[in-house]
Structures are given as structure tokens and as C-alpha cells.
Design a protein around this nucleic acid. Structure first.
Length: 478
DNA sequence: TTCCCCTTTAT
DNA sequence: TAAAGGGGA
């Protein structure tokens, strides 16, 4: 090792010290390491991170700052443009190396490619790593050499290769760093927190940062995994891992999860069904990133192009309905409960996400992008790959999509997955004294609850939607 | 081409 | 019980 080498570690969506290949490589290769975060939200346009996401980022940066401090380094926080900032810090510090972990969304990829090219040209050694996916999207292809289009075949192939995945890297405990002398912004300077304090409900639900992510994972393995297959669909139960925001910001890595599950399987082989279920959840996350990698336009357009011509509602037609949906005032209790959970906590149970998406795109005929944009702004786990795949799946216009004739009936779903209405009443306290009919299907005009009447007729809107979708399906695929 | 298979359902 | 479809080997 050349004792004069100084490395920059450019943190992005990998806000952790454990299983962080870029950080580990920097510490191994260079005498001095400077951890760096560059805030440049505009560079993610048109998907500039939303308000809930920013809330999380603020607290996660604070946590990372603490972790790095304990390891003996100061996190340098700066603002973009990223390339110029990197060049400035390289001059300022005499850095010889730059390390980062790859993102796979199209905007990041093209920016990072450019940065790598420019800085390499200026004599900097740039190295990037895969830290956030189990497999490189480019390497998984069908027998014909084309990208997979359905989850099942894709996951079979990836599953077959999982045994090759190395164990997670141990946390970096000691960083020798000259960064103490460098100027930095504080997370607060990035103005990520709300000016109006709407985040009260967030604090009671979430703990951010690497340590919190690890603790949640431990808790999940201990309590939820043994009944995962049975309870994960019930939104009032703590049956899911709730790791999505931690995963999005890279506070924990899929490799850590994979190896944790592997250990669990050795300890209690009885939990095989549950293990397979949670594995396939990891698989869907993986698949979403894979699809966005191979079909970059899927973030902004229907993958099945016929759907761009579907009779989606025009802006002026949809305003009132979209707003009712966003505010949780559609009069359909399970849907409104979900939308209010989202608003108050920055998160929604996945079963309910499917229901509210089905209602918006199919019953209300509002373009899936409107829903995707709302989720993008309000979810703490907002992730371009997962969000695009989820919405296109729901609308029936993406890869491996839900069949167009599958339109959720919110009443049936509520009855099945929230039979006592506990979830509904928790988020819609105005329905506390309501009977099951009201809880499942909404209020009739002579009932006194301070809750809106349904803004739509479920069965008629269902029939209309089927007709619209059927017309589209009859057109030939391009 | 044929056959198997499909996260998340409807009446 | 049926499946208005379609991907992959």
C-alpha cells in the first residue's frame, strides 16, 4: 500500500458500515479514508425524492454521522452538482481514489458513468461495487439471451445462483481519516425536514439508521418470521418486516438478509414455507430493479404501450377523485384507512397498497403515474424500481402484470383481511361504532357517521373498467 | 409447437 | 370451479 493514498468514499443509498464493499475496499486499499455525502436531488429528475423520503434521509444521515464518528471519521456533507463537488474535494484533499456502491436506476447510472469517465480521465482511480442487489441485472438472461419478463422464471434462475453469494462483509470499525479538518454541512443544512411539523406520526413508528435496521431484522426473525406466511396479509398485525425504507437507503443489505435467513433455516428447519415466502419478497425487490434496469422507460410509461392509449381520465376530470383518494376520503373504508396510514406514517401495508392502486387505476380510471407520484412523495420507502413495478403490476400494463380482469373488491378484501375492522377503525376513528357492513362496504346515506359516502359505485365502475381494458387488450401488441 | 406454470381473484 | 393471457424451456 502506498502510504500517501487518500480515498473518498461516496455514500449514496448505502448508509451503513457493515457489508459495504466500497467502504471496505477503501479502508483496505488506502491509508486515509474520507466519507462523503453529496446532496444533489435535482440530478434525480424527474423523480426528485419526495418529502417523506427526505425525512428519512435526514435522520439516516444523522445516524451515519454517529456511526462514522465512532469509527473515528467525520462524514463530509456537501451539495452538488456532484461532479463539480467531487472535483473540488479531490483538489482540496489530494485524494487519489474514489469508491462507491452502484445504484441501478437509469438516472443514477448515466450520471455515474459520466462521473467515472471524467474523473478517471483526470487521473483518479474510480471503483464501484454491487452492494444493494443479490445479482447484477445484466447477467441474468433467458436461454434466448433476452431479459426475463415474468417473475417465476427469473427467480428460478436467480435462486439457482444464490449459493454463490458470499457472506456479508463485517462492519468497518476503524477508519483513519483526515476529514476532521475539512469543512462540512450538517444534515440540518440540507433542509430535508418539514417546515410544518407533519411528521409526528413518523417518529412513533420508525427508527432510522443502520442499528435500527439490524434491530428490526432481529425482531422480525424472532417474532414475525415463524408466522410470516399466515399473518403477512393482515394489515393490523405486525406480520411483515417493515424493512423497505431501511433497504431503500441501504441501512441493511439484501446479502445480510439472505445470510440471516440461511442461518435461521439451519436452526429451525420447520419454518421452510415462511422462509420461502420471505425469500420471494426479496426476489420481487430484485426483480423490480432488474426490470427497471432492462426497461428504463418503465418509470415513466406503461411497458405495454397499448395502455398509453387507454381512456385514462383527463386532468380536469380526475382532480376531485384523485384528491379524495389522496386524502383518504373515497368513502371506501379499507382504501381510506390505507391512504391515511400512508399520510400519517409514511408507509402502507402491501396488501392495502394493492387495493388502493386497483381502486385508483381500475375503478376510478386515473393513470397509474398519478398514483405512483403520490406514493413517491408520501412513502418513506419510495423506491423507483419497486414503485414503478408495483403500479404497473396493479394497473395491468407492466411485466408479469395482474390480469386486467382482476379488479379487487375492497369489501371482500376487507372482510377477508380485516374481518374485525381493527385496521379500518385504527385509521378511521370516526367509524369506531360502525357495524361490519359499514366497515366493509362504506356508509349508506341514512347512517350518521362523520365519514363521506362512497364516491363511486363499486360494481358499476368495475364493469366500466373491464370494458375499457377489454378494448385495449383486443388491440394488437406492438 | 406443446406443455407447464403463474404472489397477491371473481361469482 | 374457471381463467377474458402469456412467458419460457
Amino acid at each position: 500500500m502506498d502510504r500517501t493514498d487518500t480515498a473518498l468514499v461516496w455514500f449514496r443509498r448505502d448508509l451503513r458500515l457493515a457489508d459495504n464493499p466500497a467502504l471496505t475496499a477503501a479502508v483496505n486499499q488506502c491509508a486515509r479514508v474520507i466519507p462523503l455525502y453529496i446532496h444533489a436531488p435535482d440530478e434525480a429528475a424527474p423523480w426528485i425524492p419526495g418529502r417523506a423520503s427526505n425525512w428519512w434521509l435526514h435522520h439516516s444521515l444523522c445516524a451515519l454521522q454517529r456511526e462514522l464518528h465512532q469509527a473515528g471519521a467525520k462524514l463530509i456533507i456537501a451539495t452538488g452538482p456532484t461532479l463539480e463537488r467531487l472535483q473540488h474535494i479531490v483538489r482540496q484533499t489530494g485524494a487519489t481514489h474514489l469508491f462507491w456502491n452502484r445504484n441501478y436506476d437509469p438516472t443514477s447510472m448515466s450520471r455515474d458513468r459520466d462521473i467515472k469517465q471524467r474523473l478517471t480521465g483526470q487521473g483518479l482511480s474510480c471503483q464501484s461495487f454491487n452492494a444493494n442487489l443479490l445479482s447484477e441485472p445484466a447477467s441474468i438472461l433467458t436461454g434466448q439471451g433476452t431479459p426475463y419478463k415474468v417473475f417465476g422464471a427469473y427467480w428460478r434462475t436467480v435462486s439457482g445462483q444464490l449459493h454463490q453469494i458470499p457472506p456479508p462483509l463485517p462492519p468497518v470499525r476503524r477508519i483513519s481519516s483526515p476529514s476532521k479538518d475539512l469543512p462540512t454541512l450538517s444534515p440540518g443544512d440540507l433542509a430535508l425536514l418539514p417546515r410544518i411539523p407533519w411528521d409526528g406520526g413518523f417518529h412513533s413508528v420508525w427508527q432510522t439508521g443502520e442499528q435500527a435496521a439490524l434491530e428490526r431484522w432481529e425482531q422480525f426473525l424472532l417474532h414475525a418470521l415463524p408466522a410470516y406466511d399466515r399473518l403477512r396479509d393482515f394489515p393490523d398485525r405486525d406480520g411483515t418486516s417493515r424493512l423497505s425504507p431501511h433497504l431503500h437507503f441501504g441501512e441493511i443489505s439484501p446479502r445480510q438478509l439472505l445470510w440471516g435467513l440461511r442461518q435461521q433455516a439451519d436452526q429451525s428447519p420447520a419454518t421452510v414455507t415462511h422462509l420461502e415466502r420471505i425469500h420471494s419478497q426479496l426476489g420481487w425487490r430484485e426483480f423490480a430493479h432488474y426490470i427497471l434496469y432492462h426497461s428504463p422507460r418503465s418509470a415513466n410509461q406503461s411497458l405495454d404501450r397499448r395502455f398509453e392509449k387507454l381512456a385514462w381520465k383527463a386532468d380536469d376530470e380526475q382532480d376531485a377523485e384523485l384528491q379524495a383518494w389522496q386524502r383518504g376520503e373515497t368513502g371506501i373504508p379499507i382504501v381510506d384507512a390505507g391512504m391515511r396510514e400512508l399520510w400519517q406514517t409514511g408507509w402502507m401495508h402491501n396488501r392495502v397498497r394493492m387495493l388502493v392502486a386497483s381502486l385508483l387505476t381500475k375503478n376510478l380510471g386515473v393513470h397509474w403515474l398519478q398514483g405512483a407520484r403520490w406514493f413517491w412523495d408520501t412513502l418513506v420507502d419510495a423506491d423507483l424500481a419497486n414503485n414503478s413495478l408495483g403500479w404497473q403490476w396493479s394497473a395491468g400494463c407492466g411485466v408479469d402484470a395482474a390480469p386486467y380482469f382482476r379488479i379487487f373488491n375492497p369489501a371482500t378484501q376487507a372482510k377477508r383481511f380485516d374481518p374485525e375492522g381493527r385496521y379500518i377503525k385504527r385509521w378511521l376513528p370516526e367509524l369506531t361504532g360502525a357495524g361490519k357492513n359499514v366497515l366493509y362496504s362504506g356508509r349508506l346515506s341514512d347512517e350518521p357517521f362523520d365519514y363521506p359516502l362512497p364516491i363511486l359505485d363499486l360494481s358499476r365502475s368495475r364493469r366500466d373498467a373491464l370494458q375499457r381494458w377489454e378494448r385495449i387488450k383486443r388491440q394488437q401488441r406492438e
